[in-house]
Design a protein around this nucleic acid. Structure first.
Lengths: 338, 338
DNA sequence: CTGAAAGCGCTAACAT
DNA sequence: ATGTTAGCGCTTTCAG
């Protein structure tokens, strides 16, 4: 059978309490005893059981990670990378991550992941936009929450956020610097704070350069931000406006979809139309042409998020702490000077 | 505080044993009692604690997922998708997955993931090639193991495997059907069973069509199977052999790397050279040209793997059970008839 | 400085 | 049919 603290105690001829004490070397156990115990531990290759310890300490060393299923699947692997980032960071802090996707529309039935009802996590990371109701459902459990790439309107929660306004502005600035004036914005779901902020950055840049906003250049009727939505938005744009020279798509998926559609209409990228995305997703590297975009450090964001969580758990908290992640322009081949 | 089984018992005026019994409705508790208990449970919104239950039942309802860090990071998100597949399937079976990457070279120090030493998993899924030593380290823990996309030479473990031979053959057959005769193979790490099998499929196809094997067309000197390795293998190929018309790269990453390199040498794909990959990775959809490849159903593979694990855990085992996943040709634009 | 013992929340004999 | 009780492996007062 598996070796327990009792076995160690017996072998070292001390009580289990003593073993436990040296394990958490808070108390100054005399060196002789400590050495005896340590030796027994080593000889037996004893490892404390996380489960048993969890029961008495009421902590699991698990962190829940919640994301809606469509975010995790239908779009580019953006949240997957954030997840991986939390995972890597977690390892260094002796935590494990429990992933749980939830439906993107609220569902009374199985509103909450099992890991919360079963008290199997010490805290929860919420990635991307989630139904507001779930946050309400979560409330009574008193678990530390940290949001990433989204946070609910009342700003009272911890969150690590991308600087989407800066990103939107950088993208648009770059297009303007390239000489473009008729710059379209392809977006979807303006309820989403990220999209809204990217759009805001776009408007800021135009305003700063005194370029008037033109509604014909702004397509925000999509509800998704998928590749398909990008293609669809692109046809809308082509219908509404003839003389676009550049487009800023609110994310790479839409940019890629738009590129595909433009090409199928005989437009060359970037000769006929420049296009810039946002996120810096893998597919943008090998697309034709490779996509100019705003790089978002996804792994790093995940790591930061986990760090905030650990800070909370270990009471080094600044309550409702926020972290803003800044983003960089990555120039590839889908944009050109005119 | 959190509501426990005692609270329920008290409220229903029964003992905790009775509550536990109705919870696992094995015994036929009279309906009156059962209803009383159920009502108390509902009123109190009681949920059993996984931790406490785990302690007595000696099961965690966690499954460990081990993969080497370079598999998980440096290559295309192949194992990420397999991981996701296990995750989705796990949810349906009330399990959670604990992910743990390990170094790809054996490391005496922290040989084993914490989740095994701390007894925090009921079984382990091992994805991709791992150092043989880790399997030895794992042995004493007596945990059910299931391998996915790799398995150690002695065939005594459960495994779900891709039909790489079939895939390699399908890829090569297709190239041959297109009229190609001088077909190169770009590979790396022939120690890896998957690569070896794909190569085997390649040879099988040639043999069947009586096309002699030409060593000048076979590049297997790479140790990695990354995009960079693909580019590097491509220059080797160009050095060794002038009149190649098609290449079968052992995976998409290498194919994509090779394409990039060929293009930089002024070769057009597929006009000058046809290329086919293996895996069907996202980036292949938007690459230039979109990549013809062998589709591997990654999510599904993950799900199958988890199913095998559950079968083992619930004793519906066929010991050392194997599952072979078959693969399909996906024709896109990187190959042409000659 | 160390050991005895209570208890974390739950399950499963064993009694009644 | 239901309750009593002894653990599961660990931590932590509280005595000694």
């Amino acid at each position: 059978m598996t070796v327990t603290i009792k076995d160690v105690a017996q072998k070292a001829k001390v009580s289990t309490a003593t073993v436990s004490l040296v394990l958490h070397n808070n108390n100054r156990i005399p060196d002789v005893t400590r050495r005896k115990v340590l030796k027994a531990i080593q000889d037996l290759d004893y490892r404390p059981s996380r489960i048993a310890r969890g029961l008495v300490l009421r902590q699991t060393h698990n962190i829940g990670f919640i994301v809606t299923d469509d975010h995790f699947l239908k779009t580019e692997p953006f949240y997957t990378h954030i997840f991986l980032g939390t995972e890597f960071e977690a390892r260094g802090h002796k935590y494990y991550i429990l992933l749980n996707t939830i439906p993107s529309v609220f569902n009374e039935q199985n509103c909450l992941p099992r890991f919360v009802t079963e008290k199997n996590v010490d805290g929860i990371i919420i990635a991307g936009k989630v139904p507001a109701e779930i946050i309400t459902c979560l409330e009574p459990y008193q678990l530390p929450l940290v949001f990433v790439d989204y946070h609910p309107a009342n700003g009272k929660h911890c969150a690590v956020l991308i600087d989407n306004i800066e990103g939107g502005k950088k993208a648009t600035d770059y297009l303007i610097d390239l000489g473009h004036r008729r710059i379209a914005f392809l977006g979807g779901d303006l309820d989403h704070p990220s999209i809204r902020d990217r759009f805001h950055g776009y408007k800021l840049a135009l305003e700063e350069k005194k370029i008037p906003l033109d509604n014909k250049l702004i397509i925000t009727s999509e509800t998704m931000t998928s590749r398909e939505a990008g293609a669809h938005a692109a046809v809308e744009l082509l219908k509404k406006s003839k003389n676009v020279t550049a487009v800023f798509a609110c994310n790479d998926a839409m940019a890629l979809g738009a590129i595909q559609l433009f090409k199928s209409h005989g437009l060359r990228i970037p000769q006929d139309i420049s296009i810039i995305g946002f996120d810096d997703v893998e597919a943008g590297i090998t697309s034709d042409p490779p996509l100019t975009t705003i790089h978002v450090p996804k792994i790093d964001i995940g790591a930061q998020t986990m760090k905030v969580m650990v800070d909370i758990l270990e009471k080094r908290v600044k309550k409702s702490h926020k972290v803003l992640i800044s983003v960089e322009l990555v120039v590839r081949a889908s944009t050109r000077k005119i």
